[in-house]
Design a protein around this nucleic acid. Structure first.
Length: 283
DNA sequence: CCTCATTCCTGCGGGC
DNA sequence: TGCCCGCAGGAATGAG
């Protein structure tokens, strides 16, 4: 699943292959994928055609491509559960789940938005202070140079809920999904159901540090397997097979203490934790 | 204001 | 062999 590291890999790929190229046209093959764009496919096509992208930005799991000629406007891209942005040769067969195609004036690769489960999408938005209006409620992510560890830790402790819920709340700290939340909690030896209000600032800042570390490692590995020809956001990179300590390891030994990793239902999804290193809070 | 369950969507794999 | 069902989950939405 695309979380922050996967989205950042995509951002870099787009930056390298799509920035500065005049747009020849846009084909929306599946309107649902542009449902958040006002005016729909027609308006999207009208605005993008003849324009071009400036350097791509990212906050958490969102990325956006400011337009070169439409001052203050940007194309926002969210990958959802299964979205990919591919830079493909123009004569390559269409992918089964190709949703949007952006063609350029040259005959180099075109940009394709591919999304099986259609939770993702792309849409036009206005920038306010460089940030799309629809994502102003999204907090900075731990890889943002302006991310404030202490302020975020305090915001987390003010919440009246469990720690894993807050890690997944993009308005408090962004970029973390189910996988990296479990990884950060494992590294911190914290159970996801621990009440935030009973954690110390030290525990929470350390947890944020671990979230940053695990996402940085994932990004490094995603970066090495990422080869220049296309941007891939499939969570099944080498990173996922080798380096996860908790997520998806049900029944396998904890790499710290050997106890079998346990899987539990949480928030309509699965959580993975070590039953010995990450003790459940008293009820 | 705050928290939390529900909803969207489709391919895959297990069970029968 | 094939059908059904549960599961995967990011985030908008509305209920309470």
């Amino acid at each position: 699943m695309p979380e922050l590291p996967e989205v950042e890999v995509v951002r870099r790929g787009i930056d390298r292959w799509a920035t500065g190229r005049p747009i020849a046209g846009v084909d929306v093959l599946y309107p649902r994928s542009v449902r958040r764009s006002s005016g729909g496919a027609a308006a999207l096509r009208a605005v993008l055609t003849g324009d071009g992208f400036r350097c791509a930005s990212r906050r958490g799991k969102y990325l956006w491509l400011p337009l070169a000629r439409s001052e203050g406007a940007a194309l926002v891209v969210h990958l959802g559960m299964s979205g990919q942005v591919l830079m493909q040769p123009i004569d390559a067969d269409d992918e089964k789940h190709l949703r949007v195609r952006i063609r350029f004036d040259d005959d180099q690769r075109e940009m394709r938005f591919v999304d099986q489960r259609t939770f993702g999408g792309m849409y036009l938005d206005d920038l306010v202070d460089g940030v799309p209006t629809t994502i102003t409620h999204i907090a900075r992510d731990p890889l943002d140079p302006n991310f404030d560890d202490l302020a975020t830790a305090r915001a987390i402790r003010r919440k009246d809920t469990e720690i894993k819920r807050v890690l997944l709340d993009q308005s408090v700290v962004s970029g973390i999904g189910n996988i990296y939340a479990d990884e950060a909690l494992w590294r911190s030896r914290l159970h996801g159901r621990r009440p935030t209000s009973r954690l110390t600032n030290g525990q929470v800042t350390q947890l944020l540090d671990h979230a940053r570390d695990v996402m940085t490692s994932a990004l490094d590995q995603g970066g090495t397997s990422f080869d220049s020809l296309y941007v891939n956001v499939n969570g099944e990179s080498g990173y996922f097979e080798r380096s996860l300590d908790a997520y998806g390891r049900e029944g396998e030994p904890c790499r710290r203490c050997g106890a079998p990793i346990r899987r539990e239902a949480f928030m309509n999804r699965s959580s993975f934790r070590c039953p010995r290193c990450q003790r459940a809070p008293r009820p």
